[in-house]
């Protein structure tokens, strides 16, 4: 299932200094990359920008060319109804399988739907996808992001 539902996420390590994020967004704009989802994790001195984009290969090349070091991971996405309790249902399934969530971020799709992105360790990814699928939770194929 991983090959079907694995979504490529790009991570960029950023030192915490003025204008650094702008350099990332400029590079992506210049390459005509559309950011579909993003999250920023930060500590006092540095941050990690995580991106799901419409063309991961192109984005990686554009960022490398601008001198950023980028890294790619597999994450997965699920689509839920935009109502109280739906995030809870997904987390409950993963907790029930004893799967640790490294991090998660979400965005609202249209007025009724929300998309949740999850990162779990690579060796439990397959198991996570299977469990969610069995419980009837809708997994999102990467084609939804790339295009």
């Amino acid at each position: 299932m991983r090959s079907k539902y694995g979504v490529k996420q790009i991570s960029v390590f950023l030192e915490n200094r003025k204008g650094r994020l702008l350099e990332v967004t400029e590079a992506l704009t210049e390459a005509n990359i559309n950011i579909r989802a993003l999250a920023m994790a930060e500590s006092a001195e540095f941050g990690i920008l995580r991106l799901v984009v419409d063309n991961p290969e192109k984005a990686k090349n554009a960022l490398s060319k601008s001198g950023f070091t980028v890294n790619e991971q597999d994450v997965f996405a699920v689509e839920v109804e935009d109502r109280p309790g739906s995030f809870n249902e997904v987390v409950k399934v993963l907790a029930g399988e004893d799967i640790n969530i490294d991090y998660t971020y979400a965005f609202v799709g249209d007025s009724k739907r929300a998309v949740l992105i999850f990162r779990v360790a690579d060796d439990v990814l397959e198991r996570a996808l299977k469990a969610l699928d069995e419980k009837g939770i809708k997994l999102v194929e990467p084609i939804f992001f790339y295009s």
Partner: peptide, 15 residues
């Protein structure tokens, strides 16, 4: 300098 592979692990791994 952080190694290219390391920061995939997230903030926790870096700290």
């Amino acid at each position: 300098e952080v190694d290219e592979k390391t920061f995939a692990g997230g903030i926790g791994a870096l700290e």
